[in-house]
Design a protein around this nucleic acid. Structure first.
Lengths: 125, 125
DNA sequence: AGCATTGGTTTCCTTTTGGAAACTACTTTC
DNA sequence: GAAAGTAGTTTCCAAAAGGAAACCAATGCT
């Protein structure tokens, strides 16, 4: 009797994997979670403010990541005709639907930090 | 009057950002969510089975990602002294605590797919 | 003997990612 | 007029990530 080679995967499972791939592609790169985490807290921020708040990022990366997210309708970019022009970025309603993901990730990260101090927490997870 | 330069960030916000960074570092790379998604469904799998199920991955990457996750106690590796030795990987209880994150990511990815067909869903998100 | 399977490792190469610094262009302030 | 702040873009480079293919050691099958 021959063994089944692969493809014992259910449809729902493949859908799930595709969904995970889609999401992670949209949120790819070193900074998107970081930027979104910031925008979810403060709603609207100018470019230079983001540059200062998202510690470590450079203008090239910030610009690129914001463009990516604008294309995916997660953030909006608005030029304001002020004295020196300013540009405000804000998270869209659609972008806010990522909130639960970010929350879960933050939650896990926090309990991970705790488990570094109390490693037994990890065994009894 | 001078403007405040940066650092108007609350402590909880910084904690949150650090948590996000921690989590994403542990789950870095192209395949970890994929592998975890698979192991969360099937519990225990052999190396070659994973190689076939995680479509597109090569042995080098699979090996490396599994090692990373073993170090972080997300999966266990057990050698079985069978005829040709087999190695089973299974997700740990601690690894299962990532379930909610993966679920949220999968959920979002699914509704994202839907919004590609009905773009108005995205505006009224 | 010869091939397949298991579970990897190693090598070599390409692509992607990301960072630093310089530069643009316009306006305001000193 | 010089400096500084706005919001980026461009260039140049280094490092990291990832893939294909070959290889290895042990065992089983025919």
């Amino acid at each position: 009797m021959k063994k089944k080679l692969s493809v014992n995967y259910s449809e729902t499972c493949k859908t799930r994997i595709t969904a995970i791939k889609d999401t992670m592609e949209i949120l790819s790169g070193k900074w998107k979670f970081h930027i979104l985490g910031t925008l979810l807290e403060t709603d609207r921020m100018r470019f230079m403010d983001l540059l200062r708040e998202v510690e470590g990022i450079g203008s090239k990366m910030l610009s690129k990541e914001l463009q990516d997210m604008e294309i995916n309708q997660l953030v909006t970019r608005t030029v304001q005709q002020t004295k020196p022009i300013t540009v405000v970025y804000e998270i869209t309603e659609y972008g806010k639907t990522l909130g639960p993901i970010i929350d879960e990730i933050a939650k896990w990260g926090i309990s991970y930090r705790n488990s570094l101090h109390n490693p037994q927490d990890r065994e009894t997870a």
